[in-house]
Design a protein around this nucleic acid. Structure first.
Length: 422
RNA sequence: GGAGAGGUGCCGGAGUGGUAACGGAGCAGAUUGCUAAUCUGUCGACGCGUAAGUGUCGCAUGGGUUCGAGUCCCAUUCUCUCCGCCA
């Protein structure tokens, strides 16, 4: 969430920036400022009430110690009023703080200056494009038909044992999944990211820490018996490793990579665009997460973008990079670059990676801080990106590498697969 | 799942109703050719104050009892040990 101090100091600028998300935040921000003022007034009053009653208690203690029980008992009566007041003020303070917090939870991150205004993905700004779109054979097939033809993914079987959106990978298909995971992890560790394995279920606090809660409550699978959530992305457990931490400046940059399955309810999706691998309830992803000094976070984001470019180059997939517009930007992000691979057989772009800088928005919820040169605690910046999400990479490979009777395996993956065609 | 023990600051660790010892780490300042050592201070959150300062809160979490709670009571939660079950 946004820092109160920032709202106090830059309210107008924030309102203006949030317009790029098509949000009129003026009323909410005024509400925040109003509650903040109220909260501080109540706290000041509560503090002085408590200070007085602490003082009296101390005196009573001294009197008892020196045997003056009668005087002490007399003083006790003085505390009754204070006690009543402080109880009431305490309740007020809690109520106001709660209200303030709930309001702050509803305000999304402030978009970076470079974020274009816009409503939908059509307003995203293409900033880079690379790779040749291959000439496909005649009667080229979309990946779901290729998957069936070569018997490497069985969607019906997944429906049988779980439901739609839970594919079963078979034979070379399964091996290719494993190969992609290993390849991505190797590329990331080569680039300096530390490989990590994290739990696939998280508690509620973690969900709040990275901002999935309360904003996306209905999008996560919730295990009610144990009140745990299946992770929608490794971002949640990995970033939450640093919840309530004060890191050292020397620790920067903190860089992790991890493979996890991701679980998303995708309530509300339908139609042709969710066919095959395009949108799933369970999919695999290798994620990169960084914790950075605020001064470096945008350079780090550029670094992540370069890193993902390299991988796509090696895979020889045609891709483009988009700067997301305000309307398409995630709730917690300040700036996001999406990577899209061109799916030749479907004749459309598929999002396969997304790299974002959250600035201090997540860190504020996480209480993830570092000590600056003056010994003051400051919020760090968090970033993450996929490198990469498997299903659409797989879709891109299947479609773009198809031949009349086989699918070629990209050269860099051959050592990981142990075969060069399907 | 059953029984027991426990959770104190960055770490270790004392503290059975009178307002968080002590040790160590880190940081800052002082001091001494250097390294090191020594001394002093500091350590989380939120207020008030231009500032120096100063107040409140923080002993797993949330309540309660009390003039006063780390300490007593209730609930929740996590960890450890033993038993059971088990990849």
């Amino acid at each position: 969430m946004l820092q109160l101090q920032r709202i106090r100091e830059q309210k107008d600028a924030i309102t203006k920036a949030l317009k790029k998300r098509n949000i009129d935040a003026d009323a909410m921000l005024n509400g925040v400022l109003h509650l903040d003022e109220k909260r501080r007034a109540v706290q000041t009053e509560l503090d002085s009430t408590l200070a007085e009653s602490n003082k009296l208690s101390k005196e009573i203690g001294m009197l008892f110690k020196s045997g003056k029980a009668e005087e002490a008992n007399k003083m006790k009566s003085l505390t009754a009023n204070l006690k009543e007041n402080s109880k009431k003020l305490g309740e007020d303070l809690n109520g106001i703080a709660e209200e303030l917090k709930n309001l702050l939870y509803q305000i999304p991150n402030v978009p970076h200056d470079s974020v274009p205004a816009g409503n939908t993905d059509e307003d995203n700004e293409e900033i880079f494009r690379e790779g040749d779109i291959p000439e496909l054979i005649e009667n080229a097939l979309p990946h779901w038909e290729l998957a069936k033809k070569h018997d490497i993914i069985d969607f019906e079987l997944g429906v049988k044992i779980t439901g739609a959106g839970f594919p079963v990978y078979k034979g070379k298909g399964a091996r290719l999944q494993r190969a992609l995971i290993a390849y991505f992890l190797d590329k990331n560790t080569e680039a300096g990211y530390t490989e990590i394995q994290v739990p696939h279920l998280v508690n509620e606090t973690s969900g709040y820490g990275t901002g999935q809660l309360p904003d996306k409550e209905g999008q996560m699978y919730h295990v009610q018996a144990d009140d745990l959530y299946l992770i929608p992305t490794a971002e949640v457990p990995v970033t939450n490793l640093f919840r309530d931490e004060i890191v050292k400046t020397d620790d920067f940059p903190i860089t992790y990579t991890g493979y996890t399955p991701c679980f998303r309810r995708e309530a509300g999706s339908y139609g042709a665009h969710v066919r095959g691998l395009n949108r799933l309830h369970q999919f695999d992803k290798v994620e990169i997460v960084r914790v950075e000094h605020p001064e470096n976070s945008y350079a780090a984001l550029d670094g992540m973008v370069e890193h993902v470019k390299n991988i796509l180059r090696e895979l020889k997939l045609p891709y483009r990079i988009l700067r997301l517009c305000g309307g398409d930007l995630g709730f917690t992000a300040a700036l996001t670059f999406d990577f899209e691979v061109f799916s030749t057989a479907q004749d459309r772009w598929l999002e396969i990676s997304s790299a974002s800088n959250f600035e201090a928005y997540q860190a504020n919820r996480l209480k993830l801080r570092f000590k600056d040169e003056n010994g003051k605690n400051q919020l760090a910046h968090t970033l993450n990106g996929s490198s990469l999400a498997l299903p659409r990479v797989l879709a891109g490979i299947l479609e773009n590498y198809q031949t009349a009777d086989a699918i070629q395996i990209p050269e860099v993956l051959v050592p990981y697969c142990g075969f060069d065609s399907i």
